[in-house]
Amino acid sequence: MTRVGRYLRLLGVQVRMSLLTTLQYRADFWIECGLTVFWIAATLVPLIVLFELRDTVAGWRWPEALLVVGFFTVLKSVLGGAIQPSLDAVVQHVRNGTLDFILLKPADAQFLVSTAKFSPARVADLVAGLGMLVYAMHIGDIRPSVGGVLAALLLLAGAVGILYSIWILVVSLSFLVVKVDNLTFLFSSIYDAARWPGSIFRGVAAVLLTFVVPLTVMTTYPALALRDVLTAREAATAVFVTAMFIAGGRWVWMRSIGRYTSAGG
């Protein structure tokens, strides 16, 4: 418990540092908030256009599809606000050799690099995502059971774990190759597909988006849980995929640290 307490205190200090940095650059904060609102609108437009033309898409009505967009937006806030800023900084640390300082600290290096930087402006995404979920349930008359809400929350937590692990896997590559910027950009582009319900993808794409880049597990499954239609098989798939990604991410990170040769010298 003291170990957990220590890491929670450390997390608190790291978040405080990010808030202090944000307060130094007030204009940046407001510009980022504005951009976030713009991107939310850009995310919604294709869906709105599509549902103007049809009542259902691959069996999903507009409010149900909006649930998927809601989870997509919540996860995007976690990605942009808590995962991406820190892990992008790791790439810089590896390039400049300043990762040495982090590796010499008496705390888990993966924890330290993963919590080094937060972007508070992305709270706007979180608020918008939660707003979409509430609005979708309201207009679609979706009344989830307690079990459904709990399952959705667990799946959302798992999705955060998967998203973080994918980012760790990408960042671990920076120990081997010099430029991973293109890879992070590629993943951001692929992640955009998570705003669509998983059932619109067929064949190989459906398998890829469930097991390889498990976007379906991350945004569609929580929406299915809120609708109380998540099957036992889907739940088991979610548990399996989440565990594999979290364990894989940690394993690859530990291997990468062992191979790290440090810059210069």
Partner: peptide, 23 residues
């Protein structure tokens, strides 16, 4: 040649961060 101070914040904040990390 390399620095660990937090670039955008005063050094006192890096001291505070190290205090937490080193307990």
């Amino acid at each position: 040649q390399k620095q660990q101070l937090l670039w955008d914040l005063p050094p006192s904040e890096t001291f505070e961060l190290n205090r937490a990390i080193y307990d």
